[in-house]
Every structure is written in structure tokens, then in C-alpha cells.
Design a protein around this nucleic acid. Sequence first.
DNA 1: GCCAACGTTGGC
DNA 2: GCCAACGTTGGC
Length: 153
Amino acid sequence: MQYWLMKSEPDVFSLDNLKQVNKEPWDGVRNYQARNYMREMQLGDLVLFYHSNCSPPGIAGTATIVGTARPDPTQFDPQSKYYDSKSNKENPRWDLVDVEYRSHFQNFLSLAHLKTLPQLENMPILRKGNRLSITPVREQEYQFILQQGGLSN
DNA sequence: GCCAACGTTGGC
DNA sequence: GCCAACGTTGGC
């Protein structure tokens, strides 16, 4: 089992939205490194759900991987903003995973707060200029963040 | 809205 | 294969 952090802009898709629909195909990832991380994901992997490009940014809660990597259909849809004319069905370029709601933290963990915690200083999300939307998280980091969030599982 | 940091593209 | 130009991300 592995742990991950996945970013989402709450104006587009928030943890509240995930709770409402329960399960969501995580489409639209168009970055090779993030795609490769999705291909490593296994059923039951745990996810920190991060709200980006909002005020305040931070970790809102957790989710679970309930579907492993498969081709993202939006890459073949000319109407989609995620359409990729250079991809083809014989050798799809982009994948998605299925993410299921797990919990909201009692305490939203703002980026400003996370930056004060030396236990988390190695997390990519805390480093300036990091734009990767999916990153691996160490187990100790995940457990510590769960404690900080006030475990509402 | 600004802009630094980063990934991608494409000319050479 | 290099790298400048460009587009995007995302904190502030």
C-alpha cells in the first residue's frame, strides 16, 4: 500500500464534490510524471486531497484509490478541453484512476500551517515552485498529517 | 492580478 | 540534442 497527495482546484472539483458523488474518475491529468505515478497506484492506496489555487490552499481530507490506471477517455473527445490529437486508442497517452471519498479532516490543514511543521519539510508540496499535481507521500508523513487533521475517519 | 517556477514545444 | 520561447500552475 502506498500513499499519495493529489491536487484539485476546489472551484473545479472539491472534496465536498467528491463526497457528493462518492467516486470520481480522475481525468484530465496531462503531465507525464503525474501519469506515471497514477500507473503505480494500487487498489486501497490512500490519498491526501489537496485544494490548490484557492484561499487558503491546503489539505482538506482523504480519499482512496478504487480503480487502477486505465485510458482517460477525454483524450479522444474533440469536445473535451483535455482532448489530445496526438494520442490514439491503440497506444493511449493518458490514464486516469478512480478515486473514492474517505474523510474530511476536522481541521483543514492550510499550506501556511503545514509549512511550520518540521516533520513535513521534505514534502514536495511545501517546496516553492512545485507544480506536480500527484506526488507520493511517506507513510510517516501521512500518519502525522492524519493526526494533525484530527482523524475523522 | 502579479510573477516565479516549471514543463513542453519546436527550430536549428 | 540543445535551448529559447511559450503556456501553465499556483502561491501570494
